[in-house]
Lab assay of single mutants.
Amino acid sequence: KKIKIKIKVYNPETKEVLELEIEVSEEEAEELAKKLAEELEKKGYKIEEVEI
Rank of each mutant, 00 (worst) to 15 (best):
E49H: 07
I3C: 15
E51A: 13
E16Q: 13
K46M: 10
E27C: 13
P12W: 14
K4A: 12
Y10A: 04
I7S: 00
I7W: 09
K42D: 10
L36R: 01
I3F: 13
I47M: 02
E27N: 03
L40P: 00
K46G: 07
A33N: 01
K42M: 11
K15W: 10
E13I: 11
K15N: 13
K6D: 01
K46S: 08
S25P: 08
E48Y: 11
E30M: 12
K46N: 09
E13A: 13
K34T: 03
K43H: 07
E51D: 13
G44W: 01
L20I: 14
K15M: 04
E28L: 13
V24L: 03
I7N: 00
K1Q: 14
I22H: 07
V50I: 08
N11I: 08
L20S: 03
I7K: 00
E30Y: 10
I3P: 04
E51K: 06
E19R: 15
E28G: 10
I52K: 01
I52G: 02
L32N: 05
A29Q: 04
K43G: 06
E16A: 14
L40T: 01
E41K: 10
I52S: 03
E23W: 09
E26M: 15
E27K: 07
E48L: 07
I47K: 01
L40I: 03
E49W: 10
V9K: 01
E16L: 13
E41Y: 07
E13Q: 04
A29E: 03
K4P: 01
G44H: 01
P12H: 06
I52Q: 03
T14P: 01
A33G: 11
E39S: 08
A37D: 01
K46L: 15
V9Y: 14
A33I: 10
I7Q: 00
K4V: 03
I5R: 00
K15S: 07
K1H: 13
E41P: 02
I52L: 09
I5G: 00
I7V: 06
L40M: 07
I22D: 03
E13T: 15
I47G: 00
V17Y: 13
K8C: 03
E49Y: 13
E41I: 14
V24Y: 04
I47Q: 01
I47P: 02
E38T: 05
A33T: 08
A33F: 07
L32K: 15
E41T: 10
E38G: 07
K34I: 03
I47T: 02
I3V: 05
I5D: 00
E49C: 13
I47W: 02
E21V: 14
E23S: 08
E21C: 14
K34Y: 03
E48P: 02
N11P: 03
E31F: 15
E30V: 12
N11L: 04
I22C: 15
G44Y: 00
E30C: 14
V50P: 01
T14L: 05
I7E: 00
I3H: 11
K8G: 03
E13L: 07
K35P: 00
K43D: 07
E51I: 14
K1C: 14
V9W: 11
V24A: 07
K15A: 09
K4E: 03
E16T: 10
V9I: 07
K43F: 05
I22S: 03
E38W: 11
I52T: 03
I5N: 00
V24T: 12
L40D: 00
A37N: 02
V24C: 15
E23L: 10
V9A: 08
K42A: 03
G44F: 01
L40S: 01
K34V: 04
E26Q: 15
E23R: 12
K4T: 11
E23M: 09
E38Q: 11
L18N: 06
E28W: 06
K1F: 11
E21H: 09
Y10D: 00
K43P: 01
A37K: 08
A29P: 04
L40F: 07
I52Y: 11
K15R: 11
E31N: 06
E19Q: 12
K6R: 13
N11M: 08
A33P: 04
V9H: 09
L20P: 00
N11A: 05
V9G: 15
G44C: 03
Y10H: 14
E28F: 06
E26K: 08
T14F: 03
E39A: 13
L18I: 13
E28A: 11
E19W: 05
K15P: 02
E39M: 14
K43Q: 14
Y45I: 02
I47S: 00
L20R: 03
